[in-house]
Computed example of a mutant assay.
Amino acid sequence: MRILRITDLSDDGLADYSRLTDVALRRVSEPAGGLYIAESTKVITRALAAGHIPRSVLLQEQWLPGVEPLLADHPDVPVYVGDSAVLEELTGYHLHRGALAAMHRPQLPDPRELLADARRVVVLEDIVDHTNVGAIFRSVAGLGADAVLISPRCADPLYRRSVRVSMGTVLQVPWTRIPEWDVAAPILHDAGFEIAALALADDAVTLDDFAADQPERIALVLGSEGDGLSRRALAAADTVVTIPMLHGVDSLNVASASAVALWALRARSQASPR
């Protein structure tokens, strides 16, 4: 490995790791810089397995043996090594997950490419909490949807917290950004998808009924934490689906709702499609 001992925090090569806890800064600087941060050897392993290319690695001395085999195919990637206090001063928090890697962002595919062979996709509209985004990706990976499509204002799936909460599944599940609904809805319909909006509405069908007679291709749309789905999303939907609730509770957290809905569709997947 190309090991570099940290002696100067102003080194240009360390800029990728500066102020990692500044969410407002990172949500702009990381996409603009064409990078994302993979945290922990497990996530780095999944990133490399997905074909992503590392820019550099940052870690404490004791984690070198675990990282060395991961970089066998990338011998020229700089590996910055420092003690705990130095790394905390650089990043803004205590590194307790072993290692960080600055990774080059992969180019996002055209939505039509992801839809061509898909049967179940999840669409995230304007979800702002990175934890929720990561949790939804984990549900998608574990419960069987084929891809995730995210709106222009949705939180970044490759933000460090999203990647961590997803247990690295954002690096495995195919995803891309879609345009606004006036363009996105025709793309979904042209690919044969029924757009199912998960929301509260007087004319909504229950998830049980929808799952029992589910379409062959479903785009399940989930809305933001505060306001739910926009009027444009609801207008684009072919069906509004609701999860029946008890004891005066009207809805679930969006990540929990995604898991419930995906499980219901998975559990009934052997039913005859419409």
Rank of each mutant, 00 (worst) to 15 (best):
T131C: 04
T131V: 09
N132H: 12
G134I: 05
A135W: 05
A135R: 06
I136A: 07
I136E: 07
S139C: 09
S139T: 06
A141C: 05
G142E: 12
G142D: 11
L143N: 09
D146E: 12
D146S: 07
D146H: 10
V148A: 03
L149H: 13
I150S: 13
S151F: 09
P152D: 01
R153G: 04
C154F: 04
C154V: 06
A155Y: 05
A155F: 06
A155N: 05
A155G: 08
D156A: 06
D156M: 06
D156F: 05
Y159E: 09
R160A: 11
R161P: 01
R161H: 08
R164K: 14
G168C: 07
T169C: 01
Q172C: 08
Q172E: 15
V173T: 05
P174I: 10
W175C: 11
W175D: 04
T176C: 15
R177M: 10
R177F: 09
R177P: 05
I178M: 15
I178G: 06
E180Q: 14
D182G: 03
D182I: 07
A185C: 13
P186V: 13
I187G: 08
I187S: 12
L188R: 11
D190L: 03
D190G: 02
A191S: 14
G192A: 11
E194D: 14
I195K: 03
I195N: 01
A196M: 14
A197R: 03
A199F: 07
A199D: 15
D202E: 15
D202W: 08
D202Q: 14
D203M: 08
D203G: 08
D203R: 12
V205K: 02
T206C: 10
